[in-house]
Design a protein around this nucleic acid. Structure first.
Lengths: 204, 204, 204, 204
DNA sequence: AGATAAACGAGACGGTACGTCACGTCTTAGG
DNA sequence: CCTAAGACGTGACGTACCGTCTCGTTTATCT
């Protein structure tokens, strides 16, 4: 669960705790709504009605529709696991859960919504950026740093560019949205990142 | 000017013509509004008020806020010009007007709005996609096809992937939006496309 | 035809005359529209479209929708004819064309619209009032003045009250509008006027 | 208060009640607007602005501008009180609150608006008709029925006609609207009703 | 026979209001 | 104190009509 949906304080003393049932109902409803109406038609009122929750409760735990949508979907991603293999494979592994999610039925539609929600709202954007930083950029830096021939890729802007090469094309796919995501898409993106960086690598 | 804001028929015989002054006022107002309030706060009412136009007129010529925003900005892009030079340079030239626009003052903010507007609405998305197809994908295909070592890049999905590698990272930049777009960005994207495709190229 | 739809000047020198065909088409269309949509939904745009006339033409000859509606209907009333008979009969004759019109198919609906149109707009109201003055109040005054026993009914407010007794109930019918106008309605109204005034008459 | 502005259910259990302050502010604003702009210029937007209420709230409790106007004014009428005296006086008493309201400053203007609003809209018309039925027609029937010499006035259409004689002239006054309502107007109308019906009465 | 001018169809335009929808805040009552 | 239910002010949506205006065509009368 992301930060903003946590209580944060541990010394709360009285009254009932936050209802987990309510949280789950709201997030599930949010995903269904995002799928059925897209980000454009996403509405807190409808989520509340569907989840049989009150708007007050939603606004208490989420700052607004954008954060609600973004967190609801991000919370469904699996934990990141360190994979073994050659660096290309490791890089591909960073985005393959994302790509798997998008291939899964309405996944593309939903993730499109997330992207838009994140872009619409500064706070949601921040949450999204943090997720990407933690779950993709950080591991990516590790892989690149440890890889013998790419040890020279260290500076922030270099990592940023690698990240852009890795995930940017996914957004283009998502926004253009023609047909399903092809096979081996993650692998090809990883190859592209590698190809760009190896060209500067010291030959050996 | 994009398709939907043209009359299309040349044999209309009577009645006043579409007011060019009104069209320009509306599109300029739209850009200002997009800059000041972002896509989230973009409102036809305000555009109308600022342009001293009536909502009815706007809705007559544009289907809604999304198309209004997208066209207003796309119409400001310069015509595409064929450039000379090596293939990498030619590819970079395809996106450098876009990148130049984004570097220009509020450009990034505005283009972010365009991207969101296009993603929010199917029709705006279509207009945006057509623009990209015509102004970027088509020339890209030409460059790749003529380039000796890349003549094997022919199939649609190959072009699509090259396109994704070329523009995807820009969207990631735009959505993440930290700091300005670095120097030689277009060139680096072009290099990345080339690096990926040359790796499959028959060695010569 | 009422005043405002006449040209008024005889020294026009050049150009075509007012098109009678257009005038008729517009007035007929107006009546149909008044019937189909009531006064609430009466729209110059639709009248113009139905009559294949241009709005400009309509606004040239009529000041606005209210006058258009009122005149269109008033122009369908027959000329007033002096009738013979006892005073009660003569009084009834003053309103029987009106009542006949209201009984005629959609007449009630249409006249309801006229009443509303007249009340909505000062100019239309004036036209309506003039019609009533000329076609009902004036003849009514004559009848009352000539009738032996009612010669004492002379002052303006007395005539006005008689007029109110005579036509007021019709408006109440029109606004309440339950069921058709009963038989002998005009006669009963005339009786009521007489009954009220005879009670003050010098016995003889 | 009229029917449509009541909640109707008494077993609602949770949530805020309807705000009485808002209801009052809206109805008062409605009356002021009706007075200043007449029915023609009556606009929900302006009422909302003046009452510092939201359009949504207004549309929640009133079906539209017509019902808003009609109810706002009808709600200002005093309760009906049974009066003592001869039948003529009793009949006059039925309409004297109405006539008093019309004499009161801008009353005529406002009531004119009510009449038009009621005529413009079927639902408003129904509310108006119900009010008239309950507050005028019903008591009128009682008075006529109990009066020795008029016991023969029983059938619906007879009552209806009496009602038309009684209130119709008021509408004619309201629509023609020249000068103030004269003195003893209610009494004269009552006399007229009586005069008409006594003429058929069995001589005693 | 032009030239002149008005009438006319079509319809674009700036406005204002309509009736609906969503946001985010606030109020009430139940657990 | 958390929650469901939902009323409320704010403001945008997309549509309809008003009354003015500009086009280009079609008559009539005047030179």
């Amino acid at each position: 669960m992301s930060k903003s949906s946590q209580t944060g304080d541990e010394d709360r003393r009285t009254g009932p705790k936050r209802s987990e049932a309510s949280r789950i109902a709201v997030q599930q409803a949010a995903i269904v709504e995002l799928n059925e109406h897209g980000w454009r038609g996403f509405s807190v009122d409808r989520v509340a009605k569907r989840a049989k929750a009150s708007k007050q409760t939603i606004y208490k735990w989420w700052q607004g529709p954008a954060l609600l949508a973004v967190e609801a979907v991000l919370d469904t991603l699996p934990e990141i696991v360190e994979e073994d293999g050659n660096p290309e494979f490791k890089v591909a592994a960073l985005i393959s859960p994302l790509i798997a999610a998008m291939r899964n039925g309405d996944g593309a539609h939903i993730w499109r919504g997330v992207l838009l929600a994140a872009a619409d709202d500064p706070d949601a954007s921040e949450v999204f950026r943090e997720w990407m930083h933690r779950d993709i950029r950080q591991p990516l830096r590790h892989v690149l740093a440890r890889e013998a021939n790419l040890g020279h890729i260290r500076r922030d802007w270099e990592i940023d560019f690698a990240l852009e090469l890795l995930v940017g094309p996914i957004w283009q796919r998502l926004l253009g949205m023609r047909g399903p995501i092809p096979e081996r898409y993650a692998e090809r993106l990883a190859e592209s990142v590698m190809a760009y960086h190896y060209k500067d690598a010291p030959k050996g």
